[in-house]
Protein backbone atom coordinates (compact mmCIF):
# COMPACT_ATOMS: atom_id res chain seq x y z
CA UNK A 1 0.00 0.00 0.00
CA UNK A 2 1.40 3.36 -0.95
CA UNK A 3 1.87 5.93 1.74
CA UNK A 4 -0.76 8.30 0.40
CA UNK A 5 -3.36 5.55 0.52
CA UNK A 6 -2.95 5.22 4.22
CA UNK A 7 -5.56 6.67 6.53
CA UNK A 8 -4.23 9.41 8.75
CA UNK A 9 -4.51 9.00 12.52
CA UNK A 10 -3.67 12.10 14.52
CA UNK A 11 -2.93 11.51 18.20
CA UNK A 12 -3.35 14.70 20.18
CA UNK A 13 -0.30 15.41 22.31
CA UNK A 14 -1.50 18.67 23.79
CA UNK A 15 -0.71 18.74 27.50
CA UNK A 16 -4.26 17.97 28.53
CA UNK A 17 -4.60 14.88 26.34
CA UNK A 18 -1.05 13.73 26.95
CA UNK A 19 -1.32 13.70 30.73
CA UNK A 20 -4.75 12.08 30.77
CA UNK A 21 -3.72 8.92 29.01
CA UNK A 22 -2.94 10.20 25.53
CA UNK A 23 0.71 9.42 26.18
CA UNK A 24 -0.11 5.71 26.28
CA UNK A 25 -1.46 5.93 22.74
CA UNK A 26 1.98 6.83 21.44
CA UNK A 27 3.02 3.25 22.07
CA UNK A 28 0.70 2.25 19.21
CA UNK A 29 3.40 0.04 17.75
CA UNK A 30 3.10 -2.18 20.81
CA UNK A 31 -0.62 -2.48 21.30
CA UNK A 32 -2.26 -2.23 17.88
CA UNK A 33 -3.11 -5.26 15.85
CA UNK A 34 -0.05 -5.51 13.55
CA UNK A 35 -2.28 -5.72 10.49
CA UNK A 36 -3.54 -2.21 11.22
CA UNK A 37 -0.11 -0.67 11.33
CA UNK A 38 0.47 -0.55 7.57
CA UNK A 39 -3.03 0.62 6.77
CA UNK A 40 -2.80 3.76 8.87
CA UNK A 41 -0.33 6.53 9.18
CA UNK A 42 0.20 7.89 12.69
CA UNK A 43 1.31 11.28 13.82
CA UNK A 44 1.25 13.26 17.01
CA UNK A 45 -0.45 16.59 16.60
CA UNK A 46 -0.81 19.82 18.51
CA UNK A 47 -3.84 20.46 20.64
CA UNK A 48 -6.97 19.94 18.54
CA UNK A 49 -8.82 22.35 20.84
CA UNK A 50 -11.34 19.59 21.42
CA UNK A 51 -10.79 19.65 25.17
CA UNK A 52 -11.54 23.37 25.34
CA UNK A 53 -14.65 23.21 23.24
CA UNK A 54 -16.23 20.62 25.48
CA UNK A 55 -14.97 21.96 28.78
CA UNK A 56 -18.14 21.45 30.73
CA UNK A 57 -19.57 18.63 28.71
CA UNK A 58 -20.32 15.52 30.64
CA UNK A 59 -20.40 12.65 28.19
CA UNK A 60 -17.51 10.22 28.31
CA UNK A 61 -16.90 10.55 24.61
CA UNK A 62 -16.22 14.23 24.91
CA UNK A 63 -13.19 14.00 27.17
CA UNK A 64 -9.45 13.86 26.68
CA UNK A 65 -7.54 12.09 25.27
CA UNK A 66 -8.59 12.72 21.69
CA UNK A 67 -7.55 11.23 18.37
CA UNK A 68 -8.60 12.23 14.88
CA UNK A 69 -9.11 9.46 12.37
CA UNK A 70 -9.67 10.47 8.78
CA UNK A 71 -10.73 13.93 9.89
CA UNK A 72 -13.21 12.73 12.50
CA UNK A 73 -12.69 13.39 16.19
CA UNK A 74 -12.93 10.66 18.83
CA UNK A 75 -12.68 11.27 22.56
CA UNK A 76 -11.95 9.31 25.71
CA UNK A 77 -9.50 7.09 23.85
CA UNK A 78 -7.47 4.24 25.25
CA UNK A 79 -5.38 1.53 23.57
CA UNK A 80 -8.22 -1.02 23.42
CA UNK A 81 -10.70 1.48 22.02
CA UNK A 82 -8.25 2.69 19.40
CA UNK A 83 -7.72 -0.88 18.26
CA UNK A 84 -11.45 -1.33 17.85
CA UNK A 85 -11.96 2.06 16.24
CA UNK A 86 -9.34 1.44 13.58
CA UNK A 87 -10.59 -2.08 12.90
CA UNK A 88 -14.09 -0.68 12.39
CA UNK A 89 -12.73 2.08 10.19
CA UNK A 90 -11.49 -0.47 7.68
CA UNK A 91 -14.83 -2.23 7.38
Amino acid sequence: MKKKDKILVKICVGTSCFVQGGADLLLYNDFLNPELLDKFEFEGCSCLDACKRVDNATGDETRAPFVMVNGKLHGNMNPEKLNKLLTDELK
Binding site: V13, G14, T15, S16, F18, V19, S46, C47, K52
Partner: peptide, 14 residues
Protein backbone atom coordinates in the same frame (compact mmCIF):
# COMPACT_ATOMS: atom_id res chain seq x y z
CA UNK B 1 2.50 19.97 37.77
CA UNK B 2 0.42 18.49 34.94
CA UNK B 3 -2.72 19.85 36.60
CA UNK B 4 -1.00 23.22 36.92
CA UNK B 5 -0.13 23.23 33.21
CA UNK B 6 -3.68 22.18 32.32
CA UNK B 7 -5.21 24.89 34.47
CA UNK B 8 -2.95 27.53 32.95
CA UNK B 9 -3.48 26.22 29.40
CA UNK B 10 0.23 25.72 28.91
CA UNK B 11 0.85 23.45 25.97
CA UNK B 12 4.36 22.13 26.54
CA UNK B 13 4.75 21.01 22.98
CA UNK B 14 3.96 24.46 21.55
Amino acid sequence: LAALFMAKDIDVRE
